[in-house]
Simulated scan of single mutants.
Amino acid sequence: MSKQVKESLTVSPFFLFFLIHGAQTGVGMLSFQSKIVIGADQDAWVSVLLVGFSFHLIIWLMYFLLKKSNNGDILSLHQQLFGKWIGNIFNLCFYGYIILTVSTIVRSYVEILQVWVFPYVHLWELSLIIVLASTYIVSGGFRVVTGMCFWGVVLPSVLLVTLYFPLKYANWNNLLPLLNHSLGDYIVSANQTITNYLGPELLLIYFPFIKNNHDSQKWAHISIAYTTVLYFIITIVSFVYFNIRQLEHTVWPTLILSKIIRLPFIERFEYIYIFAWLLVILPPCCVFLWAGTRILRTTINLKPKTSLWISSAIVFVIVINLKSEISIENINSCLTTTGLIFLYCYIPTLFFLLNIINFFKKRKSLEN
């Protein structure tokens, strides 16, 4: 059984569903359709499902690693496998990945606000509001962050009803011909899909904060399954409303879908959509920021508040320096590559390395 922090700081295994799903659904949900069509075109929904299925395997690998870790997290596992100094270097690399993720989320959402709602408001002003809001929530501790994830999943779920309106104009022939692409095409689309599924890797940090964590794996798999179904539904709705050529030139397809909604008392429904999405992007920002704070606290013994403010300041500085569209695309591309390497290369490598070490230990004990 993995070690766990004192019970007053833990949350029930049920909340793992909201922690994982809340970290996975962010600003990428508004634009991923125009990216995944690169490669598999109208069959990109297959790549969405394949990536979702692959994350179930990654969850299984992570639980294996966590149960073998001394303190139930990847921070102690790094030190266990590589020693204190090299292990801390790997921990700080993970911290860099976390900061990169938060910066990408904040900058992408601010871009939407500037283009759609506040074209004359400065980048630093909008960024500061989001970073300070995230910092305030994280300062309340892991339970407050979990509560933010809960409401960040429940309240925006009402927006799923709006997917009914585009279906009234659906052209199901847009999905034809079915399954007429090569494996390479599906891999290209899958590579563009991975960014939207990032988030479960933080389980490697907050696992000790899950009560009875050895029995919580089913909630992690349920969360991944729900996220996969959600992305699949949005993909299908987008594909039957837009044709492939339209999607290639549409930056935020999900927001465009909301523009067709007309209600007697609301003329510009997309404004409600954009502002409600703040509740969607805050959970991943908070979970990642909390994880970064814990890494600094554990690795270099900084106080929690000091770690939090250092992390928030780094994020803010990075965001305000991403001023051009090219820089935003570059940081998104960097996050995709980093997430791909971490999830599909590094975690399996740790799995095999740990098994090899255990094999030789058992062999040596039998010889003795």
Rank of each mutant, 00 (worst) to 15 (best):
W172L: 11
S157Q: 08
Y169R: 13
G22Q: 08
F90H: 09
V48Q: 08
F352H: 05
F118A: 01
G26H: 07
I331A: 07
D185S: 12
G83I: 07
S238E: 01
I36D: 03
I86D: 11
I331K: 07
P253L: 09
F269H: 02
T146M: 07
L308D: 10
P283S: 07
I331N: 07
K3V: 02
I86W: 13
L57Q: 06
I38L: 12
L50A: 14
W172M: 11
K305Q: 14
M148G: 06
R363Q: 13
A40D: 05
I266G: 03
L255E: 10
S182L: 00
L167I: 14
V237H: 03
I89V: 15
G26Y: 02
I98W: 02
Q24C: 00
W290K: 11
L81M: 10
G87V: 03
S2I: 05
V102G: 10
G72I: 06
V161G: 12
T227P: 05
S311Q: 07
P200T: 01
L278G: 15
Q217E: 14
I20T: 06
H249L: 14
V161Y: 10
S238G: 11
K362C: 01
F55A: 09
T337P: 08
P284H: 09
I300M: 03
L335Y: 02
H122Y: 04
N171Q: 13
S324L: 06
I356G: 02
T104D: 08
L100Y: 02
F360R: 13
V11F: 01
P348M: 10
F342P: 05
F269P: 01
F232A: 09
L132T: 14
N171P: 00
W124R: 01
W172K: 08
K35E: 09
A190D: 01
F360S: 09
N70K: 15
L19C: 08
I356H: 03
N243L: 08
S103T: 06
A220L: 06
Y120C: 00
W309D: 08
K68M: 09
I310V: 11
S333M: 09
N191M: 12
W45C: 00
L343A: 15
E111V: 11
Y63A: 03
L335S: 14
T254I: 04
F17A: 10
V138G: 06
I274F: 07
L335N: 07
G184F: 04
K211G: 00
F55V: 09
P156V: 11
N91H: 00
S307L: 00
T104S: 12
C334Y: 15
T227Q: 11
S34P: 01
T306V: 11
V188I: 15
S324R: 11
T25E: 13
F351C: 04
Y109M: 05
W85R: 05
G199N: 07
I347F: 06
V315C: 10
F32S: 09
L308S: 03
H214W: 02
T135D: 04
D185Y: 04
K67Q: 12
S12F: 00
S31L: 08
H122D: 15
L343E: 14
L57R: 03
I20Y: 03
I281E: 05
K3G: 09
L335V: 12
G339W: 10
I244H: 01
V317A: 15
S76L: 07
T227A: 15
T349E: 04
I205C: 02
Y120V: 06
L128F: 12
C93M: 13
I328C: 10
L160R: 05
I129M: 12
D185M: 09
L354M: 13
T338H: 07
S103P: 03
K168I: 10
S139P: 03
